[in-house]
Simulated assay, not measured.
Amino acid sequence: MLFWIIAAGLSAIVLAALLAPLRRRDENEAPAPDVAFYKGQMSEIENEHERGLLSEEETERARTEIARRLLAADRSGRREALGRGPAWPAAALGAVVLIGGAFLVYADLGAPGLPDQPLQARLAAAQELRAARPSQQQAESRTPATPVQAPQEYLDMVAELRAAVPERPEDLTGWTLLSRHEAALGNYAAAARAQERVIALKGAAASFEDRLALIDRMVAAAGGLVSADVEERLTRLLAERDDAAGPLYYMGLLHAQTERPDLAFRYWKRAIEQGDPAAPHVALARAQIPRAAALAGVDYSLPPLPGPSAADIEAAGEMTAEDREGMIRGMVEGLASRLAETGGSAEEWARLIGALGVLGERERAAAIWAEAQQVFAGTPDLDKIRAAAREAGVEG
């Protein structure tokens, strides 16, 4: 209600500002020149009559004639004013269109039915939303499987692995491979269960990356939701390494999902500033931080990404075809190795898939595409990689 009172008051002020000049013009508007002239003549006749220069009969005759001309001049002036058109109705119509248009735009783009939201109430609502999250098990049960296309040979290999590994419960290598390949095929819940087994077998020797990989699979299995179970694991990881991009990204995602864009922005900003620009979690943070910044009312510009130097580009242009192909293969292998170890941006994944397609290594391209679908699940960046996979002939 307070909003509408303020809006109505501002509208009244605008309307008064629009109509005030017209009122001043009407008040100060001079009479028509002919009318003023005849009124002056009437005054002169009265003066001459008083001084005895005109008789009563002559004065009355002159009064009658001037009065007739004065009425004619007044009627003529009114017709001219009507011909110019009334200013008040036009101004009033313009004001109604302007103010009414503003209210219509707000009704369409704004939220007229939304009540006032004081900070304390919004914080309480965010806390309630956070507390009402489904459990990891509930979220996984609600998330449908996302099958990934892959060569039949690869599918057969994973099927064999899926059947053999449970028969060897202490086979750490088998469970590690099963977790990785289930994730590559989009079977995130199965991948998470396998990764849990990997961590259980390693015990205290389980690395930071092992536990982060489990979080990756759990979030994907929950359809992108950061559950309370995942939050507990993230808290422990951040206690070990408060500059790790992966946990920072997921904590930001948690706050974005619970209506706290201000906190999401802070976590994602730290992930971008402290993490490797080529890491997938940093790429995800870069993709989502602009919206969080806008919702939080922060003016923020992404830092530029590093790229090849001008000297590198010039040197590549001077190579022979054979040398250039060798350089490309070397770059492809280096990029593939780095993505396998530390991850990378969506552009790099797309570049690797495209390069493998050009080099004729379609099976490798298909495997990379399958893994990319797990890493970038639920993000807009996946479309960029899908386009590269389609060009390489391993998607669609």
Rank of each mutant, 00 (worst) to 15 (best):
E361A: 12
A278W: 04
V230N: 02
E371P: 01
D262A: 14
A355F: 01
V105Y: 09
A350H: 05
V394F: 01
G203L: 04
G101D: 07
I289L: 11
A7Y: 08
A321W: 05
K202S: 04
I215F: 08
E182W: 07
A126W: 10
A150M: 13
Q152E: 15
Q127T: 12
D229K: 13
A213M: 10
S227I: 02
D116G: 05
A336M: 01
A92F: 09
A121K: 08
E391P: 04
E170W: 01
V375H: 09
Q149M: 12
A388E: 02
V96N: 00
E128R: 11
E361W: 01
E46Q: 08
D242A: 13
E140K: 06
L214F: 11
M157I: 03
T176Q: 13
E182Y: 14
S141E: 15
L129H: 03
I385V: 15
L2P: 03
I215Y: 10
K39Q: 15
A287D: 14
A192G: 14
R351S: 14
I99N: 03
A388D: 05
A102S: 12
P380R: 06
G393D: 01
A279P: 10
P277F: 03
R362V: 08
A311F: 03
L70R: 13
V219L: 00
I199R: 09
R270G: 00
A67T: 15
Q257P: 07
L356I: 04
I353S: 10
I45R: 06
S207I: 05
T258H: 01
A191Y: 12
E44L: 11
L18H: 00
L234G: 05
G52V: 04
L93S: 08
L214A: 06
Q117Y: 02
G224T: 12
Y249T: 08
P169Q: 07
V105C: 06
D243V: 12
R25I: 10
R324M: 08
